[in-house]
Design a binder for these strands. Structure first.
Lengths: 161, 161
DNA sequence: AATATTTTGCAACATTGTTGCATTGCATTA
DNA sequence: TAATGCAATGCAACAATGTTGCAAAATATT
C-alpha cells in the first residue's frame, strides 16, 4: 500500500472545528456498529457519502479519489456497504448505478428505503426525498410486491432559478 | 443458433397464416410510420418485442438472435427505436437496461409511459402494468417533475403458485 | 508484540457500450 | 427495373464497467 500521509491527523483534532471531529467519529462509529474493520478506504468512501447531499455513482468516487485506492476496492467497499445496509442503490432512468446513504432503519440484508428519489436532468444530482413516502400500489391478482422504487426526474430546486 | 422450441404457450395464439401475416404487416407498418427504412434487423428485433409479453434487455436480444447480426447493430437499433418512441427504457432495481414497447401515445422524442413496471425476482420477467398509472407525487418547493418511474419488484403471478 | 483474520492491490479477464469507416442494402427517381 | 443517393450494417478498435484469484499488506485479536 502506497499512501502513508493521513488526511486528518489526530493532532489537529484540537484545532479543527467540531463538525469535522464529529464526522470522523461518526464514520468510525458506523463502521464498528456494522462489524466492519476500520480501513482507510472505507473511511474515505463513507466520508464521501456523508459529505454529499446527493447520491454517488461508482465513477464519482473513482474520480474523486484519484489513484488513492484501486477500482476493485471501490467496488468491493460499495458492495460491502450495501450488504450491511449502510447505503442503498438507486434505480435511475439512465440506468447508471448510484448509491446513497440509508436511513437508520436499514440493517444488514434488510433495506427500508421506501422514499422517493429525485434526479435532476440538468445538474445530474440525485436526491433522496426521505420525507416523501412511496404510495402503495394495488397490483393485479397474483402479484406480490417486495420492493417499490419511485424515481422522479426533472429540475431540482437549485437549477430552478 | 437455430432455437426451435418455443417457450411460452401462455395465451396460445393459434399461428394461422393470417396472424403471422398480421404481425409481419404490423411490423412494417410501425417502421414506416416512424420513417424508418425496413431492414432485416429492425424487423427481427421489433418482432422480438411484439412476441414477448415482458421487457427485453440488450443481452436477451443478442442471445436470441445469435450471430445473425452484429452487437453494434442491436445497440443502434434499440437506440433508434427509443428515439422514435417505439420502445422505452425501464429503470430496474438491478440497474440492468431493459426495453419494452411503448403505448400508442408515444412518439418521437416524447414518451408517455406513466405506467407501473413490475419485475419478478424469481423468473426475472419485467412486466408493463399498463392499466396501473403512477400516482402524482407532491415534491418539495422548487422541484419540478418531468418524468416519474415506478418499479415494483417481487413475485409475479406465474411464479406465485 | 505476535498471531489470526480481513482487506487491499494487482493482474487477468468478461461484459457492456461507443466510434469511425468501408461496404452493403434500402428507397427513390428516372 | 435499373441506376443512383442515402441510410444502415459489419467490422475493428477502443473505452468503460464489472468480476475473480491470489499474494501482500493492514487490521483486529490474543
Amino acid at each position: 500500500m502506497k499512501k502513508t500521509a493521513v488526511v486528518l491527523p489526530m493532532v489537529s483534532l484540537r484545532t479543527t472545528p467540531n463538525s469535522v471531529m464529529e464526522t470522523q467519529e461518526r464514520i468510525v462509529d458506523i463502521l464498528k456498529k456494522n462489524s466492519l474493520s476500520v480501513t482507510d478506504s472505507r473511511k474515505k468512501i463513507l466520508r464521501y457519502f456523508l459529505e454529499s447531499d446527493g447520491a454517488l455513482a461508482h465513477a464519482d468516487i473513482e474520480h474523486q479519489s484519484g489513484t488513492e485506492f484501486d477500482r476493485v476496492t471501490i467496488y468491493r467497499t460499495l458492495q460491502t456497504f450495501v450488504d450491511k445496509g449502510i447505503i442503498h442503490t438507486i434505480p435511475t432512468a439512465d440506468n447508471a448505478v448510484r448509491y446513497a446513504l440509508c436511513k437508520d432503519d436499514c440493517y444488514a440484508g434488510h433495506h427500508h428505503d421506501d422514499h422517493v428519489h429525485f434526479m435532476c436532468d440538468q445538474c445530474g444530482t440525485t436526491y433522496c426525498l426521505d420525507h416523501i413516502t412511496v404510495p402503495g400500489i394495488s397490483l393485479p391478482a397474483g402479484f406480490k410486491a417486495q420492493q417499490t422504487d419511485l424515481v422522479v426526474s426533472g429540475i431540482c430546486s437549485k437549477c430552478n432559478n
